[in-house]
Design a protein around this nucleic acid. Structure first.
Lengths: 342, 342
DNA sequence: GATTGGCACTCGGTGCGGTAGAGTGCTCAT
DNA sequence: ATGAGCACTCTACCGCACCGAGTGCCAATC
């Protein structure tokens, strides 16, 4: 598609632009690319690249800026991902584990580590409740007639709202009841625990109707609440450090999108068949994000995809740095979560 | 301190400035205040008010802008809080309760309702872990040798990290153990459950050393983790709608502060002896916030202050609207939380 | 003595032309 | 095909004049 020299020139322009955020001049390419040719020659090539849709000029007599297509091409075929040094791996790992912690907090840690490493906003969508695996149900007596429900899943605990019972139920009965229910639901995903299935249980145990009703309503609510699961986000303000986001008209829509969890969940939706991917500018589902790119990776527990970890930045992202870090942290997160749930 | 006319003029200037965000001219005051005097007279008064430190001019021949001192005076003596209409109360109440929910979520709701009502960023600091009351401890068997710890407090549940036991412990023993411990710790705040107290328990029950160690480390961690408790924040981007935050140099430090939980916790720290208060510009503990004000209120459960609910905006805030809404939501939140924990 | 109309003065915002500099495209020689 | 040279284009920047908003002050009036 592109001969070797055009490729090198394009890569040089992208790399230069990534760190200068200014249109790149032919002269600069000569200096940076190390091709032994003059700027005039580079200008020829650049004109050709523009013709092909890889570069554009903000105005005649300005340098060139890469198009979305150029980034796409760069990411797909030109990038040479930096190798993470052993020390860096070590540091990232330490940052994630500075305390041994349960699922939610591990994810928060991963996001924070990512944001601090690359200095862009970082996000993770956590497990969608529907996909979590039911492990146990517990009814915890608070007082004689007040009970708190807890659902333990493979990746954490759902806590219900305390419930007021019409009459006292003794702790042992509660205990037997929760074991009984747990045995029948274990191994299902929360999404599979439907109204029908719960109603079937009620049939078998009409006596404890009240408790089952409670469980019922509570699960309906939890499971449906946020279609995309929870969102963790860190380092939003790094965006403001970037020159293209120095005018408010540009940042403002992006920040608003980051504020809206549903939209973020959509943006982070995994691309089927990939564990690491890049979404560039116009490929974003929202117009508000068309000045941005994300580098994203799914994380999984025991082979089941549980969510997405991603970094968000301007289209001129340091892809070759971001890719390996995101990949590493997502993989490491998967391992840590799998250990937890083992 | 100020005669009646000066007061009316000052109030008019503040109100006008709150919604125009532009220096206020004498002519405008005449039109707005309804005092039957000419602009020249008002100019005299304005000069006097400037002399007294209540007004300032961005430059000679510009209108006047209120100083921090003016806002302070306005808030302390001049504001007439708007009365909330019955419908508005009803709406706020509904927004908070659109689902019956447990503590954490009630707080989130309150913050969201506030942000949507006033259109400024809203925050709440939730309960500091130290101040929560220990209710019960539960050990939940996951598998034969894996146990999950839960601490039920007056306002929610703390979930530990699953623990690996050296040898299987049967559920009944776990159960007795947790009841035994619970009985000894009930009624203490988490902050009062010190290393010493736990070590005393270990002494009594050397056999289950391992479980107690776990509890021990876990509580140390939880209780110390975030000095200021959790922070909930909503609607940050409303800030960008305000003219004074249209230049990035002004917003950027504010947004960064909002990103840092510790700083926010500091800003929201209750003022002793007050349930509702206003912090204006230079009164803020951080220089980064000196273009902002907050209107804040504490919420409480059963008389114990549990956290702060607040709205954050430019110094020219619609205080007379914000005050009653914040007060109402905080009070209502207190009631809802008290109901929950009753 | 307080109030007011009138007026000169100040100062920021806007629009305009002129200039400097960066970077290109093109041409012609190699 | 490459490269040196040059004319051309466009932006960013500067200084300038002008306009209008709003004040401060003063002299006249109630």
């Amino acid at each position: 598609m592109l001969n070797a020299r055009k490729g090198r020139i394009l890569a040089a322009i992208i790399q230069e632009y990534v760190h200068s955020a200014e249109p790149v001049a032919s002269e600069v390419v000569v200096r940076r690319s190390g091709l032994g040719v003059s700027s005039a020659t580079v200008r020829h090539e650049m004109a050709a690249l523009e013709e092909m849709g890889f570069l554009s000029q903000p105005h005649t007599s300005a340098g060139r800026v890469p198009t979305d297509r150029a980034y796409r091409f760069y990411v797909d075929t030109l990038v040479r991902e930096e190798r993470l040094t052993a020390e860096k791996r070590q540091r990232l790992r330490r940052q994630m584990h500075s305390l041994a912690e349960e699922a939610e907090r591990l994810i928060e840690r991963a996001v924070r580590a990512l944001a601090e490493e690359i200095h862009y906003p970082s996000v993770a969508s956590t497990v969608r409740p529907q996909e979590r695996l039911f492990r146990h149900l517990h009814f915890i007596p608070l007082e004689a007639r007040r009970v708190l429900g807890l659902i333990v899943t493979d990746t954490g605990v759902f806590e219900g709202q305390p419930m007021e019972l019409p009459e006292p139920v003794d702790p042992d009965t509660l205990d037997r009841l929760s074991r009984w229910i747990s045995a029948r639901l274990e191994g299902l995903t929360l999404g599979e625990i439907t109204r029908e299935r719960l109603e079937a249980l009620v049939g078998e145990m009409a006596r404890y109707q009240r408790l089952l009703d409670y469980l019922h309503r509570w699960m309906d609510r939890e499971v449906r609440r946020v279609a995309g699961g929870r969102i963790v986000i860190e380092g939003t303000t790094h965006l403001l450090e970037q020159p293209e986001f120095r005018q408010l008209d540009t940042v403002s829509p992006v920040l608003s999108t980051l504020d809206r969890e549903e939209d973020l969940a959509e943006i982070l939706r995994p691309v089927p068949g990939r564990t690491v991917w890049v979404t560039i500018g116009s490929e974003m589902p929202y117009a508000a994000m068309r000045e941005c790119s994300i580098v994203a990776a799914t994380y999984a527990v025991g082979g089941r995809t549980m969510g997405t970890l991603a970094i968000l930045g301007p289209k001129r992202m340091p892809y070759q740095r971001a890719l390996p870090v995101v990949r590493f942290l997502a993989r490491h997160l998967s391992e840590a979560l799998t250990d937890l749930s083992a």
